[in-house]
Amino acid sequence: MVRLEYIKKEYEKTRQMPGKWYLTSCRYKFNITRFQPFLSALKEKRLIGLKCRSCNTVSFPPKLVCGKCLTRPDQWVSLRETGIVATFTANYMKDETTGEANAFPVIAVRQDGADTTYLTQLNPKVKFEDVYVGMPVKIKWKDNTEGNLNDIDYYDCIDDPTQKMDSLTK
């Protein structure tokens, strides 16, 4: 670790008291019945989003409220299995055996046909260096779907038609 020097001043110490924010005692309520069609679709390996009738914004995963119109969207629309990487970052995880910190890409996917992003994980075999904004990805389902978000195993890269075009022009 590189140490950075800066002008420091030492202060004397005062008494310290223990204190805690008991976050674990908080519960969060969420009415899942509204999302039931979405979850049932996942079980059938289908993707659906919620469309706001007044501004045509499609949200995936479905959103309870359309902020633009302050209405409750209620129209389910089908989405394709492909999407693009809207943005991404890395998650550094320590390898248990070697103790090395490895970068795992975490991506925000915009599903084709939807207008919002979903934070999810990329195929762990894809190297972080190879990810870029605008990269096309495709959903990889779990073999046994149960009707929840966990049915999406990860997103996998697919061939990028724009890159193919770039190579042709070269």
Binding site: Y28, N31, L70
Partner: peptide, 18 residues
């Protein structure tokens, strides 16, 4: 023990007032 999520409660309130 209100049978709604937080966002739903807020949405209902604000929408109701308007």
């Amino acid at each position: 023990n209100l049978n709604m999520g937080r966002y739903e409660m807020i949405f209902n309130t604000v929408r109701g007032a308007l």
